[in-house]
Amino acid sequence: MTKTSSDIKNDHLIIHLSPAWTRPYLRLARLDRPIGTWLLLFPCWWSMMLATTAPGYQLGSSFAPAYYLVLFAIGALAMRGAGCTINDMADRDYDKKVARTATRPLASGELSMKQATAFLIFQLSIGLLVLIQFNSFSMILAASAIILVICYPFMKRITYWPQAWLGLTFNWGALVGWAAVRGELSLPALLLYIGGIAWTLGYDTIYAHQDKEDDALIGVKSTALRLGRHTQSWLIVFYSLCTICFATAGWVMGLIWPFWIGIGVMSLHFIWQITTVKIDNAHDCLSKFKSNRIIGWIFLAGIFMAANVK
């Protein structure tokens, strides 16, 4: 193992206040590290809100925005946890060889595979309860994402671009959010999905630089290893594509000036990430990765304000 810190934070408030027997499960679901839940949730919220903004579009009487926002939040929390559980079940032998992940509940033996399987079923059941609140089309669409979730842990073994597969997975909510409101898919949702994939390629490449030395030693692939010193140039490509797709989605929907202010501020944040990231500094990579929560809020605020400012 190389000398990188464990990603388990035993002093986190959620862990500290929880009963001892629940703590391994909470860490398995990454409830002590909510950034992944936010990154999964934002595409759902963006798409849902964008779907309500078309001039003259009449929302169904059953649509309650606040209720849908909460449903997506619960669903993102459950499915992110399920995804992490599947990932750790598949990667437990690899995780033992990496200092940052060696103390994860399955890698360390704190939980058994049988316990993890039972917990996975519990999380998927919560996801199912959320799913049945939506229309039939969005239910089928959302359920199909489980294939992406199951396959993701194995991508790092066969391709240097597992971050692209993560993008396909994490941004599926951009399709589901739109479908939950409208019962169909159209161009703006697809643009959000493509832009979200590019966004994920950017932020998860930064994240992957934390583990590049360990990954190279144990034979796991990533865009951090593939792009290496050219990472910042590729971040320009990823984040530019993201911005173009998001902006085009807003243009197609005819959104007004607050949306474009949001796009501008988001672009400045991307520029800051690209120009200041230190790819050989694990702490800085983690900080830049987490800062993408700000991107989520900026873009959501732009959509919301454009829909509500007269």
Rank of each mutant, 00 (worst) to 15 (best):
A307W: 00
T85K: 04
T53P: 11
S267W: 05
Q273F: 02
L286W: 13
A216I: 07
L40T: 03
A301S: 14
T85Y: 02
G196K: 02
C84S: 12
S267K: 02
S287F: 06
Y203W: 04
G202T: 01
C44S: 12
W38Y: 15
D214V: 02
V265F: 08
R226G: 13
V220F: 03
G56E: 13
I35F: 01
I121L: 15
L39V: 00
H209E: 08
Q210N: 02
Q273D: 11
K114A: 14
F42L: 00
C84P: 05
F154A: 15
L187S: 08
S61Q: 15
Y203S: 02
F299K: 04
L71M: 10
S136Q: 14
M139I: 15
T4Q: 14
D91G: 04
F63V: 07
A145V: 10
M155F: 15
I158M: 12
M48N: 06
A66Q: 09
R33N: 03
M49S: 14
G167D: 04
D91L: 01
I274L: 04
T85P: 10
R100E: 10
E110T: 09
S291P: 01
G177W: 02
I236K: 14
V252Y: 10
G296T: 11
S136N: 13
G250V: 04
E184R: 11
E184G: 06
H283A: 15
F63S: 00
L59C: 10
L235S: 06
L241C: 15
L13F: 13
S267R: 01
G302Y: 03
G254I: 11
A116T: 09
I15H: 05
Q58T: 13
A301I: 14
S108C: 05
K290Y: 00
W21N: 06
V70E: 09
A224G: 12
P105G: 06
W234G: 03
T52E: 11
A179N: 05
W272C: 01
S138A: 15
Q232T: 14
A64P: 00
Q273R: 07
A198S: 11
F154N: 12
Q210C: 06
L31E: 12
D93Q: 15
I86Q: 06
A306K: 10
R100G: 10
G228M: 07
F134K: 00
T231Q: 07
I147Y: 11
T103I: 09
L28G: 08
D93N: 13
N292L: 00
D214C: 04
D88L: 11
D214E: 14
R23D: 03
W257E: 12
R100L: 10
C84W: 10
P65G: 08
A282L: 06
A180G: 02
E110F: 01
W46A: 00
W257R: 09
N87T: 12
L286G: 13
A174V: 06
A282S: 08
A247N: 09
I206P: 07
D7T: 12
V98R: 00
G60M: 01
D32L: 01
L148A: 11
A76D: 07
S186R: 02
A208V: 08
T52Y: 05
Y94F: 15
T276D: 09
Y207I: 02
P34A: 14
S291E: 05
I146C: 04
A116D: 09
Q273V: 05
D214Y: 04
I14F: 08
S291A: 14
L40V: 04
L235K: 05
K156F: 02
I244K: 06
T53F: 08
Q58C: 03
L227V: 06
